[in-house]
C-alpha cells in the first residue's frame, strides 16, 4: 500500500500541502484531477522523493516508476540505453534486463527501435520508449503525470489501452495525474479532485465496475457531471 500522511510542502511563503493524506491500495489505480498549479505534480514529486517535504510517505521506499509529461530521453543515448540508464542498477544481470527490454519493446510495437537515437524518433515513438522505461522498472508503484497529453488522439488512445492491459497483466499501485476525465474512467478505480489553498481532496468517487468492463454510460455521465462541478467550484 502507498500511504501519504500529513504531507507538508511549501514554495517560499506559499503552502502547497499542509497535512495532506492519501492512501492507495495495492494494485489500485487512483486518478487525480485538478486545476493547473493546484499541486498535482508536486504530490507525485513528493511521493517520488524528488522534492524535500514534511510528513510520512510509505510504500515508495524501493523507488517508483515515473511517466513524465515529456518523454525525458537522453539525446545521446539510444532507446534501449535510455531504458538501461534508468533501471540497470535494479537488475542483477544485463541479460535479464536486455530480455525484459526486448519483451516490452516488442509488446509496445517498437521492436527494432532499440538502437535509434531520440532525435530520429517521432513523438509517439519517444512516448512509447518512455513508457517502456517505466514498465521495465521493477517497482510496484507507478506514477504518471499526464504522459500522453501532447500526443495525437490515435496514439493517445492506443497507449492508454496498452497501459490498461499492462496494468491488468501486472497490477501496480498507480497514482496518475490527468486532465482527461475519459482517460480516468478508462484506467482508474478511484478519482480524486484536488483543489483549495493549501491543496486538499475536494471530491472523491470510486468506480465500482471492473476496468475494461465499464459499459454503464448513464452512471458514467452522472459521475462526469459531479467531477466537472467539483473542478469548477474547488478553485
Amino acid at each position: 500500500m502507498l500511504s501519504v500522511k500529513g504531507l507538508k510542502l511549501s514554495y517560499g511563503d506559499k503552502k502547497i500541502f499542509d497535512g495532506f493524506d492519501l492512501e492507495v491500495g495495492d494494485g489500485e489505480v487512483v486518478c487525480i484531477l485538478g486545476r493547473s498549479g493546484c499541486g498535482k505534480t508536486s504530490l507525485l514529486n513528493c511521493i517520488a522523493g524528488a522534492v524535500a517535504c514534511g510528513g510520512e510517505i510509505k510504500g515508495a521506499e524501493q523507488g517508483v516508476a515515473y511517466l513524465f509529461q515529456e518523454p525525458r530521453l537522453i539525446p545521446a543515448l539510444t532507446a534501449a540505453d535510455n531504458v538501461r540508464f534508468a533501471v540497470m542498477h535494479l537488475y542483477e544481470d544485463d541479460k535479464t534486463l536486455d530480455a525484459e527490454i526486448d519483451k516490452v519493446f516488442s509488446s509496445l510495437g517498437i521492436d527494432g527501435l532499440q538502437t535509434r537515437l531520440p532525435s530520429k524518433m517521432s513523438g509517439g515513438q519517444a512516448a512509447r520508449v518512455a513508457l517502456a522505461r517505466a514498465l521495465c522498472h521493477p517497482s510496484d508503484v507507478l506514477l504518471t503525470d499526464e504522459p500522453f497529453g501532447a500526443l495525437d488522439i490515435a496514439v493517445k488512445l492506443s497507449l492508454t489501452e496498452y497501459l490498461a492491459n499492462a496494468l491488468k497483466a501486472r497490477p501496480r499501485t498507480v497514482v496518475m495525474v490527468s486532465h482527461g476525465i475519459d482517460e480516468c474512467f478508462d484506467l482508474a478505480d478511484r478519482i480524486l479532485v484536488l483543489g483549495g489553498d493549501p491543496c486538499r481532496v475536494s471530491y472523491e468517487t470510486e468506480i465500482s465496475e471492473p476496468r475494461g468492463e465499464r459499459t454503464d454510460i448513464a452512471h458514467r455521465s452522472e459521475k462526469t457531471e459531479c467531477i466537472k462541478r467539483a473542478l469548477t467550484f474547488c478553485g
Partner: peptide
C-alpha cells in the same frame, strides 16, 4: 528535467 528524471529513478 533529465537530471530530475535521473534523481527520481535513483540512478
Amino acid at each position: 528535467k533529465l537530471i530530475e528524471m535521473a534523481k527520481i529513478y535513483r540512478v
